[in-house]
C-alpha cells in the first residue's frame, strides 16, 4: 500500500488510491484503495448506504473528493475519459424523450462520429448489431418508454457496447430486471471480458457473486477486502462487510458450495 507508483497502478484500468469522500451529510467513504487487474469482471458489493455509487461517481469526478487519487489506465480520468463507459442507474433518465432504442444505442457512437458529421448507415448497422447482441434487435424502433425495465437495461448495455470503451462502470445493471435479462447481461459481460474489457459492476445479490464475477471488492464505507473471488469472498469477509445476517450468509455459502461442486 505504501507504494503508489507501482507498475500495477500505472497499467491498471482503474486504480484508486487513498480515496476519501466527505459530505456534510452522508454517505462517506474513506481510505479506499484498490487496483483492478485488466480484463477482469469486478463486482462491487456491500450493504445499502455503504457508498458503492459514491465510489463510482467519485472515480469519475462527478462528485468532489476530500483526498485521494484515481487513475484510469495510468492517467487521470479526464485524460482517459474516452476509454471509460458508464452505465447509469435507470432512474436518472427522461424516458419520455422522443428517441427509440436504436437512437439511444447510436448515441454511444457519437464520440467516434465527431462534431457536426451526421450518423451514417454503417453506424446504425453497428448499433443494430449491438442491439441484437443484447437480444432486443426486434425492439429497435420502439420508443424507450415502451420498453420493459429489463429491455431498457439491455439498451443501455448495448449503448455501452458500441461505445467500445476499455473500462465499464455499471451502477446496478441487475436492479429490478427479469431473470432472462440478468442472464443475458451476464453473458455479455463475459463476452466483454473475453475481449479484454474490464467491467466494474455494482451488485446486490450476494448469491450470484461467485457465479458472475472473478474479482470482487467488498465495500462498507471503506474497502473490507478486494481480490479474486475465490480468495476474498469468504464468510469472514462477508461477515465483516454485512454483519451477522446469518441467513444471508448461509445462502451464500450454499451458493459457494454449489459452485465448488460444479468446478
Amino acid at each position: 500500500m505504501a507504494t503508489p507508483e507501482t507498475e500495477t497502478a500505472s497499467t491498471s484500468p482503474l486504480s484508486i488510491y487513498d480515496l476519501t469522500v466527505a459530505y456534510h451529510r452522508k454517505p462517506v467513504i474513506w481510505d479506499v484503495e484498490f487496483d483492478i487487474p485488466a480484463g477482469s469482471l469486478v463486482g462491487v458489493v456491500g450493504p445499502n448506504g455503504a457508498g458503492k455509487s459514491t465510489l463510482l461517481k467519485a472515480a469519475m469526478d462527478l462528485i468532489p473528493r476530500a483526498s485521494g487519487r484515481v487513475s484510469v489506465f495510468g492517467k487521470t480520468y479526464r485524460q482517459n475519459r474516452h476509454r471509460v463507459g458508464y452505465v447509469p442507474q435507470r432512474e436518472g433518465v427522461d424516458w419520455d424523450f422522443p428517441v427509440n432504442a436504436l437512437d439511444v444505442v447510436t448515441m454511444g457512437l457519437y464520440g467516434k462520429i465527431g462534431w457536426c458529421s451526421p450518423v451514417r448507415p454503417s453506424h446504425r448497422r453497428a448499433a443494430m448489431e449491438a442491439l441484437s447482441r443484447v437480444g432486443i434487435a426486434e425492439l429497435a424502433k420502439r420508443q424507450i418508454s415502451q420498453l420493459s425495465g429489463g429491455q431498457q437495461q439491455r439498451t443501455f448495455l448495448a449503448r455501452a457496447l458500441v461505445q467500445d470503451a476499455d473500462l465499464y462502470l455499471m451502477d446496478e445493471p441487475f436492479a429490478a430486471v427479469d431473470a432472462a435479462t440478468e442472464k443475458a447481461v451476464v453473458e455479455i459481460l463475459r463476452d466483454m471480458k473475453d475481449d479484454g474489457k474490464t467491467s466494474v459492476v455494482i451488485h446486490h445479490d450476494l448469491q450470484t457473486v461467485p457465479d458472475y464475477f472473478d474479482y470482487v471488492i467488498l465495500l462498507n464505507m471503506r474497502v473490507v477486502a478486494h481480490g479474486p473471488v475465490a480468495d476474498v469472498f469468504t464468510p469472514e469477509n462477508l461477515n465483516k462487510t454485512y454483519g451477522g445476517r446469518l441467513t444471508l450468509l448461509d445462502e451464500v455459502s450454499n451458493a459457494m458450495r454449489r459452485r465448488d461442486r460444479s468446478l
Binding site: L62, R81, Y86, P88, V104, M107, Y110, C116, V119
Partner: peptide, 22 residues
C-alpha cells in the same frame, strides 16, 4: 441541422455527452 446529433445527445443525456467529448 449541423448540430442535430449533438443537440439530441446533450438534451437526452448530458453526462454521456461530456464523456463522449461533446
Amino acid at each position: 441541422l449541423f448540430f442535430y446529433k449533438e443537440l439530441k445527445l446533450s438534451s437526452f443525456d448530458p453526462s454521456l455527452a461530456t464523456t463522449l467529448g461533446f
